[in-house]
Write a protein that binds this DNA or RNA. Sequence first.
DNA 1: TGAATAGTGTCTATCAGACACTATCGC
DNA 2: GCGATAGTGTCTGATAGACACTATTCA
Lengths: 241, 241
Amino acid sequence: MAGYRPSDYPAVAVTVDVVALTIRDDELCALMVRRGQAPHLGRWALPGGFVRPDEDLDQAATRELLEETDIPADRLYLEQLASYGAPQRDPRMRVITVAYLGLAPTLPSPVAGGDAAGARWAPVRELMKARLAFDHRTILADGVERARAKFEYTPLATTLCPDEFTVAELRRVYEIVWGVSLDSRNFHRKVTGADGFLEPTGQTTTRDGGRPAQTYRAGSLRLLNPPLLRPNAPPEPPPES
Amino acid sequence: MAGYRPSDYPAVAVTVDVVALTIRDDELCALMVRRGQAPHLGRWALPGGFVRPDEDLDQAATRELLEETDIPADRLYLEQLASYGAPQRDPRMRVITVAYLGLAPTLPSPVAGGDAAGARWAPVRELMKARLAFDHRTILADGVERARAKFEYTPLATTLCPDEFTVAELRRVYEIVWGVSLDSRNFHRKVTGADGFLEPTGQTTTRDGGRPAQTYRAGSLRLLNPPLLRPNAPPEPPPES
DNA sequence: TGAATAGTGTCTATCAGACACTATCGC
DNA sequence: GCGATAGTGTCTGATAGACACTATTCA
């Protein structure tokens, strides 16, 4: 390692970008902002920006996300995804971005007015066919795959549910994120049988129609053992490059 | 995103650091270099350095590693681990590092003379009790945990074996990395039964003593399904922050 | 009553782990 | 033969998936 004068190291900028996922209208959606300047003027991009001198990477990701949404911080799950640093990924200069994965429950509140030209929750299915700014399509795909994989062996799916939810609502989250249909009876037995996954509220609801269903909150379990595997899909190479 | 003049973004340096693991003398070892200057003068650190203007992050990690070792590039496995960017992790200036995990077979060749004050393969067990430079103890721990987790559902353990190896040698790799002992008979049935995991060479060897054992090369399988789970250990939250 | 959803019981194929047993080498 | 390691066979308990069946609501 060299010294600490600016001339000793290459000029580079570091940003964070966030793949923020939620479920709206039975679709997996990502938060996107419309670029108000070149390059990629008018294209959709992941929310993000420069890391400030005094903040940690996690703090920067949280800040950038809250600048664009009304998500209450205590219902937001954030984890680092990966870093992207191809030399020409930003034509202006060398920019290395640290990407984050965010998961949040559906909220009635629309996107608040950030400083971007526009922001919206867009269906991932459409985004994957669209032209996004920079390498954000790759980052988005990596984020979605990470979420899919983590749903197998963690209770993270509950972060996409409201505070209190039924087993059917939780199952719907899995079905939408994985793009499969699951046997409701086996799913029920599995999730209610995993100690610490769900914490009963003692209440019931009929909002799904039919017989009243018990409602639950997310429990304290962090790791699902045994896991809840995707049908017809092998596990994935989780975290990597 | 702002413009592209240096004054528009915070001054920051980006480095790569590599957690390079191998097995030597029945111990899991990591490649470490001794720091030849302040800060942390004389402490052991992960091999790493600045990302150059024209190279990708993966290229930078590969280059830094090959500067310190004789590992043939075609027997080296590298994947991105995570990025670390706490504001004060380097007292000289803001440095964000992208960490990589590297796996390589045991080689007779010692460490070649790089530009560091010294380099060696050090047992992970000892390193985890020692004081390392910067936040390298955390990075090392994350790298080791990543390797342990990936051994469950990928055939990556073969990257720590020589080109041709026996089932017993492969099992020894698992036992050392996981720190457990495995039933040799069940292990044998499992790995030889997974299509594409091992490719028989047709040769046998008696180097382990006893009845001659068949030798194998790594097959083309990328994902182990079903996985080979660690005994008494839950799966892990693989890649994250 | 019928339609809809919640939740339980049960059967079967598969698999992990334990471990008896056989095979083939060096000495 | 003896000791060592390679490799196979078999049993048992746990689990995933399929699906019959019962429970409780609303219209």
